[in-house]
């Protein structure tokens, strides 16, 4: 996937992950580096004097406070970023602008129910560029509706409806893109194979497909 073709949720995720990783890696390298340096540099050799045992009367309160302050500022700075992104993920755009799809997970498949009563199994077609709101539940055990390429997921819990929303990016050549949908919660022996596909297609093609589904359903008298 080219950078332009990443979903917005994944772009945000990547940026936040990279920032956290830089800070985390620097911190880890610093502490591990000090540990290894001291362990090797201060190692026992013949003639090396042992520092007096009574050398640490004072509690290192100042160092402790400084350190705690630095890590608190770093952590809570990041927490603010996480809060903002989480708010973005939590509150979907208005329903009028979005397509709402009811997702029901069951042992061991996903079914997708569109507003005009079209239902599909293990294959979810969506238009690119438009916000899609998934209304996720389960009809038996706890599952998880995961879209790893979008870097989002939500639990599918019997008796509950959980919201997850995404926007599929428009491909540069206006082509159709297939993503994986997976269950991320152990749900019984079929858990491994609980995979569905998310097919993001240009809006015109999507509408065509949806209409064809509706009419074929009307012909067969489905409800």
């Amino acid at each position: 996937m080219s950078q332009q073709a990443l979903p917005p949720s994944a772009v945000d995720w990547n940026n936040f992950f990279n920032l956290t990783s830089y800070i985390g890696l620097i911190a880890a390298a610093l502490v591990i580096g000090l540990m290894v340096y001291w362990a090797i540099n201060n190692r026992y050799r013949k003639g090396r004097p042992v520092t007096a045992w009574q050398g640490l009367g004072r509690a290192p309160a100042r160092e402790a406070v400084t350190f705690a302050a630095i890590s608190t500022i770093l952590l809570f700075g990041l927490a603010v970023g996480s809060y903002r992104l989480n708010t973005y993920l939590q509150y979907p755009p208005p329903i009028s602008e979005s397509l709402v799809i009811d997702v029901t997970a069951f042992q061991w498949a996903f079914s997708f129910h569109y507003p005009n009563n079209v239902t599909t199994l293990d294959e979810c077609r969506i238009p690119t560029g438009q916000p899609i709101i998934f209304n996720v539940t389960s009809s038996d055990v706890m599952h998880n509706f995961g879209l790893p390429d979008f870097k989002v997921k939500i639990d599918a819990i019997p008796g509950r409806y959980n919201i997850l929303w995404i926007t599929a990016p428009t491909m540069p050549d206006n082509s159709t893109m297939t993503y994986q949908i997976r269950c991320y919660e152990l749900c019984g022996v079929g858990h491994t194979y609980m995979i569905a596909s998310l097919i993001a297609m240009p809006p015109s093609e999507f509408n065509q497909w949806l209409n064809s589904q509706t009419s074929s359903m009307n012909m067969t008298g489905g409800s």
Binding site: F17, G24, A28, A79, S82, V152, K153
Partner: peptide
Amino acid sequence: ILGGITGVFQGFIVLDYLFHGS
């Protein structure tokens, strides 16, 4: 150190959206 720092990653809800269950 490595286990602790990677644990902090999961404390950020937004990162957990990918990491959870993985």
